[in-house]
Design a binder for these strands. Structure first.
Ligand SMILES: [Mn+2]
Ligand SMILES: [Mn+2]
Ligand SMILES: [Zn+2]
Ligand SMILES: [Zn+2]
Lengths: 151, 151
DNA sequence: TCCTTATAGATAATCTTTTTCCAGAGAGAA
DNA sequence: TTCTCTCTGGAAAAAGATTATCTATAAGGA
């Protein structure tokens, strides 16, 4: 995980560079994203934002999230198939990296392996696609859920 | 790609084994899935089913799709982040395998590489997760869209 | 301070997927 | 074949996440 404060400053700089307005709500949300470890969803970010801005709208969260997605500064993790819920987000590290998703409690942690350049070349060669990005997710049972057994 | 007819028979046998009723709509949908190459979505399957059964309901498609998902006989590919559309399905090969998703025309083709056992072991060891399944998708531009250039 | 315009907030709309309800059909028994 | 029991299809409504719309306001520069 990157240093959250450093990541926060980086995001602020990038927004400034594009002349986006640094509203308090936006700054707070960006801080939440930069510091977040647990891959929160939009509703979770909204909840935390409400502590600081009781009148915030969920739409505002989505708007900022989309803004950052377009800038390539937030990674969206879709887990619709898992709990019927919405996407989760990683604003600390937007580069493609593997995730471990617990199918029981929906905890998401970062994986440390990365695809080899060899695999990427193989895939591009076989398919003819020009690969821009990728996604590697593992589904399983997290350590906590394993000790609990079936509940 | 597996032999479609063989796959169709396999699915029929598995439904019979679980004593699910082989209604004409269900059989037709299963045939569509077994023979499908292009990773259709629910609406596409629905459209094709309408040719044979003009009164079919989209809900029926989803019900059968969910049935097969629970049986582990259909692979769901979520691309919500791409075009705002829904999931796509592979009923010909439900085992986890990589996909190449064109971010321009949304074509999906199968990738041929597979994750090494070494990577799987590494991920499990590092995380403590018991990995059940995985997902590996590549996003890029398909050959057709490359020659067209930017449209 | 003033002006311009991007953005927040409230709300409605959208879109995919699920749920509900019930008539009708599938399949086994006789 | 007929009977019976249930499962399933179809129609419609509902749900749930995300997006669009509209307007007042506030950010940032002059
Ligand atoms: Mn992550
Ligand atoms: Mn496939
Ligand atoms: Zn868990
Ligand atoms: Zn394409």
């Amino acid at each position: 995980m990157r240093d959250p404060e450093q990541r926060f400053q980086e995001l602020m700089a990038k927004l400034r560079a594009r002349a986006y307005r640094l509203t308090p709500q936006r700054v707070a949300l960006i801080r939440l994203l930069a510091y977040s470890e647990g891959h929160p969803d939009a509703a979770e970010l909204y909840r935390r934002l409400l502590d600081q801005f009781p009148t915030t709208s969920l739409a505002t969260v989505y708007k900022t999230l989309n803004l950052l997605k377009e800038m390539g500064e937030v990674l969206e993790i879709e887990i619709n198939g898992i709990g019927g819920e919405g996407s989760r987000f990683d604003g600390n590290d937007p580069a493609p990296h593997p995730h471990l998703i617990c199918v029981r409690c929906h905890r998401i942690m970062d994986g440390q392996v990365s695809l080899t350049e060899e695999i990427l070349q193989t895939v591009q060669g076989q398919s003819g696609y020009r690969v821009i990005s990728h996604r590697l997710d593992f589904y399983g049972i997290c350590p906590e859920c394993q000790v609990q057994g079936v509940n």
